[in-house]
Design a binder for these strands. Sequence first.
DNA 1: CAGTATCCAGGACGATACTG
DNA 2: CAGTATCGTCCTGGATACTG
Lengths: 116, 116
Amino acid sequence: MRRLMIKPELCKVDTALGIIVGKWKPTILLHLLVEDTLRFNALKRKIPDITQRMLTKQLRELEEEGLVSRTVYPVVPPKVEYTITPYGKKLEPILHAMHEWGKAHIERKSQPSTEE
Amino acid sequence: MRRLMIKPELCKVDTALGIIVGKWKPTILLHLLVEDTLRFNALKRKIPDITQRMLTKQLRELEEEGLVSRTVYPVVPPKVEYTITPYGKKLEPILHAMHEWGKAHIERKSQPSTEE
DNA sequence: CAGTATCCAGGACGATACTG
DNA sequence: CAGTATCGTCCTGGATACTG
């Protein structure tokens, strides 16, 4: 067995999960990792099924944790840009690893004749 | 900007999250990664705040996804062992990465005088 | 354009009691 | 020992309508 690692009692996995979990948060983060900066409605167009309410809400929460920054330009009509922070970019490897694992999991289920 | 990665629309991060999210799932997995095999009540003792109902429920869900296997010994009193599968062990790097990120996040919040 | 305000439904989780 | 069964709560997220 591999050398371990984390004392389960002291583990901060839940802390991390608490921040990235949210119906739309990973999707939002992924889009901002690709584009770096997007306006509110641009983001909304990229995530067709999200409602305005949820987009606002999830963005506010990501902002509060420092993963995303929000810039308001005092113009008419309003212009608000959302940018992924350097800190937010640090999540990329984790998101990528989860994506790979998720993909493997789907493939595994579709062909159950796998040992291991 | 770094070279990317995942098409957000095709991303399977949510798939992965759907499986590891659950109030007690990471904790259970971590314990089984440390001990490899544990009986129901041993697990319960290691996670004092969990109720029997929740322990059963979360274990069943982990079993259903193939991360944990359940072995019933037909003895009196009952003996049931839960073991992490080789497949479940593949989550270790991800859990570890999330733990590290979560720890950093906590430290960052306690001393806000960090740039980046 | 970029939001708020309200209301509502479903599910996750907890408390408690009971059982083969 | 290792569960089930029942009931209640809170919280997330969706639908819809309105606004500076």
